[in-house]
Amino acid sequence: MYYPQVRKRRTGFVVATIGAAMVLVLFAAYATTRIMVLAVPIGADPTNLRVDPECQLPDGLLQAAGTTNPTVSMVLSGAGERMISCDYVTRKGASKSRDRKLSVRVKDCDGADAALRYYFAKSPTMREAKPLKELGDQALESTAEVDEVTSVTIIVQDGKRFVSVQYDGSDKGFFGMGSAVPEEASMVALEVARRFVSA
């Protein structure tokens, strides 16, 4: 008597194959999206802003900081005080991965020490600040990493001058933005602070 051969069901194999194909499709879609994001240039369009002499920094320092694009350059005087505001950011096309912002505020007045105490009291980022003995009469540095951004803040009182420097940085990678290396950011902020304290 003839018995027809029973075919084994291959449902498990088919399901596994379909599942693997879907994973590959999803990965390819994700990779394509990441490549497109990586292709988007970092930084801001060139401003061609005329930089006040009080805000000028050496080209080599700005290039090392990744902030060759000035966005704010302002000097105000009055009532026995002088205030200097200087901002620099990454110039679009200057880097494929580094996004940086440098912000400097200087106040020349009789109450520079009071300005430092006020800033320290009002700024949450300064709660874990450490003293910097080699800078001015008194100086503090704070480093924080928030939302994939490394932020270094240095405040200095040197005689009648109060200086605050904030340097923010993040790096673009395949899986998104990540914080800049804190030690490198600290070195940049410290060098910028030195320039304004010794001015």
Rank of each mutant, 00 (worst) to 15 (best):
T90Y: 02
A189L: 05
G173V: 03
D99T: 04
L24A: 15
E134P: 00
A64P: 00
V146D: 14
C55G: 07
V149C: 04
Y2I: 09
L61W: 13
P46D: 10
A139M: 07
E54W: 01
L62A: 06
A39L: 02
Y3T: 09
R195P: 00
L76C: 00
M177W: 10
A29F: 03
V75E: 04
G178H: 15
A29N: 12
K96L: 14
S77M: 03
L102F: 04
V192S: 04
L76T: 13
R50N: 12
A28P: 00
G173D: 13
R7K: 14
L132G: 07
T125C: 00
T90M: 07
Y119R: 12
C109F: 08
R98C: 01
T68Y: 00
E81Q: 15
R98L: 13
V75M: 05
A193Q: 01
S103P: 00
V146I: 15
L116Q: 10
I42E: 10
T71S: 14
V15C: 03
D87W: 02
E128T: 15
S97M: 07
K160P: 01
V146K: 13
V104R: 02
G111M: 02
I154A: 06
R195S: 11
T125P: 00
R98Y: 07
K8Q: 15
S73F: 04
C109M: 11
M126D: 06
L26M: 10
A28H: 00
D59F: 04
D113W: 05
G93N: 13
V72N: 06
M22D: 06
D158N: 11
F162A: 08
A21I: 15
A44H: 12
S170V: 03
G178C: 01
L26N: 05
A180S: 14
Q56K: 13
D87H: 06
E184P: 01
D113H: 11
L38F: 09
K101E: 13
D87P: 02
D168F: 09
K101C: 00
Q166T: 13
G60H: 14
L57H: 10
Q56V: 14
R9F: 09
L116H: 07
R105Q: 05
S73I: 09
T71E: 15
L76Q: 15
D52N: 13
V89W: 06
R100V: 09
I18Y: 07
T67H: 09
S186F: 01
P182V: 07
L135M: 10
V106L: 08
V188W: 02
V23W: 07
M187P: 00
A114V: 07
Y30D: 11
I84R: 05
S97T: 14
R98E: 12
R127E: 00
L116T: 05
Y3P: 00
K8H: 12
R161I: 08
G66Y: 05
Q166I: 09
A20G: 11
Y3H: 08
D108Q: 09
Q56T: 12
A180R: 08
T67M: 11
V192D: 01
D45C: 01
A79M: 09
G173M: 03
V156M: 02
G111E: 12
T153P: 01
A31Y: 04
L76K: 13
G19F: 11
L132A: 10
D147H: 04
A144W: 04
